[in-house]
Design a protein around this nucleic acid. Sequence first.
DNA 1: TTGAAAGCGATACCAC
DNA 2: GTGGTATCGCTTTCAA
Lengths: 339, 339
Amino acid sequence: MNIGEIARRAGVSRSTVSYALSGKRSISPETRARIQAVMDELDYQPSATARALSSGQTHTLGLVFPPASSHYTDMQLDFIGSLVEAAAGFGYDVLLAGSVGDGVQGLRRLVAERRVDGAILMEIRLDDARVDYLTDAGFPFVTIGRTGTPDRTRWVDMDYTALVGSCVRHLAQLGHRRIAFVNRSERLFRAGYESAHRSLTGFENACADQGVIGTPHLCGDDAASGEQVVARILAADPETTAVVTVNEAALGGLYRGLAAHGRKVPLDFSVTGIAASRWATAVTPQLTSADVSAAEMGRVAVELLLELLAAPGAAPRHVLLAPPVSLRASAGPAPESGN
Amino acid sequence: MNIGEIARRAGVSRSTVSYALSGKRSISPETRARIQAVMDELDYQPSATARALSSGQTHTLGLVFPPASSHYTDMQLDFIGSLVEAAAGFGYDVLLAGSVGDGVQGLRRLVAERRVDGAILMEIRLDDARVDYLTDAGFPFVTIGRTGTPDRTRWVDMDYTALVGSCVRHLAQLGHRRIAFVNRSERLFRAGYESAHRSLTGFENACADQGVIGTPHLCGDDAASGEQVVARILAADPETTAVVTVNEAALGGLYRGLAAHGRKVPLDFSVTGIAASRWATAVTPQLTSADVSAAEMGRVAVELLLELLAAPGAAPRHVLLAPPVSLRASAGPAPESGN
DNA sequence: TTGAAAGCGATACCAC
DNA sequence: GTGGTATCGCTTTCAA
């Protein structure tokens, strides 16, 4: 079923049907009704492909899907879900590109073959080949997370530096003087994942600022690694009384490890961090944390991108989210020293 | 940059360039080389849209994304990842459709506007409106999971009935006589999710078969619900000594609940189930379970669909996976009765 | 082995 | 307010 058939049955020209569809020029009520009737009867829907070829717009957004080699986290899934939902709200679909290697390959398909109008990147590295590629190609894109030189691009991100700093200050005010930091995995850190690096910076700065002794640790993104890092933390400094974590996948293991080492939370050990509230509230005692809003970031990313598509010359714009630290039950006063 | 420009620069006709691209007719080595040189120089990639309009094939697979209202599970993410990866291997992209209501709406976009060549459905219900819609429309599709009348469609699924049965038998052989079952949430069960229903059937059949007393429970898909279900299990039957679970998101809470009620696993309480190995190995002690291979299911789904696209009349075909139960540390002999 | 030209199904400009 | 038609960038049939 195509537009010509509709035109024929309604006894009008194809252009009239097209205008009836788009509303870009006025049509007499009778004609419009006649066309509508035919469309309804045949359950006609215009071909997205033909429309795209003719108009030059696919009404599709591209998302480079993180490689499977890194196992997925809940946050990533939430991003994708909110992205799809937000895009659907604006009449856009989302096309997934599998990423091979540095991810530029998958992007190239989307961009060079003109499958999408714009792209969204996640899992950003401080130095990111995909960002360079898109910038050079002059292709519209938005990142969830930001590179080391973020001023010329559009992005939405969490203020990891500030949030980790807040956690450290909160613990310092509770009297803690020796604080450990549980970062993401060594692999991600080495690859230059921005959140891992900016979190560490925030931790170090805040510790210096507050005059507390801070020890950072890398930790795999799974419960087993979380359990193991506790041993490393206590070996590095047995006097440690608190930890800040940005590794939600390791959270359960972290708690188990503390229990295994006889540390009761929050009585003689405090835990704070950044995590999706789903994780923060799943553990016992619930985690005092800044709650990641993956859903909000996804929505904002779509808005930033559509804004750019609507006004190709639009100035770079960013949204830096810094959710408040929700005081829950996992942090308390530092135990008396020597205890 | 388009095919005409390439043709002009190479001094050949557009059709020749097209054939050079597709290899559908032989071309003299010189001509081919000349065309290739021009393409390389201009970094030419044919427009996917034009190609789709002309050929009638989008080389895109549609995936109806589960609604955000149900929070996502790791399994879903793994499906999506493996789908994207498998599809990419065959030169196909994956288009996500947000699902509103019963999901037919999102599908309609993909199908009626001919955005995709075929569709993949997940989160299947025994009675599924999306399956009916696609069947009526005569549109190629594959489901991950199967409806109540699965004989006429293509699908890949886990044999929940058999796997839960295996778990029950394993426990029965270890001497357990009172076994509880932790199913998915009431909402999913009521909605008719096939896995929740087939699991329950498997549990009931196996219990009858083995002569053990089985008590099924529904349980929300989160840790807190897992913790709560333990109280319900022990209230319903304090003599319960083992549990079978298909609710991986509740697993952590389940363990915590058992500990809170003074039950040591596997000494005086055994746990078995079906879960992604990531979850099964994350808990302590590690879970004796049949490991879901979301990645394999995703891959198989793509293969089944592409097979259908290649041969539109292809007979219905299914793949029913039944991974072995991996014996880990969470199940042991039933405690002496009266203990 | 190659070229010319007719689609594919829309959009939108130019006429009337 | 409506119709005719060129156009988007390919694929593929028909001819040579």
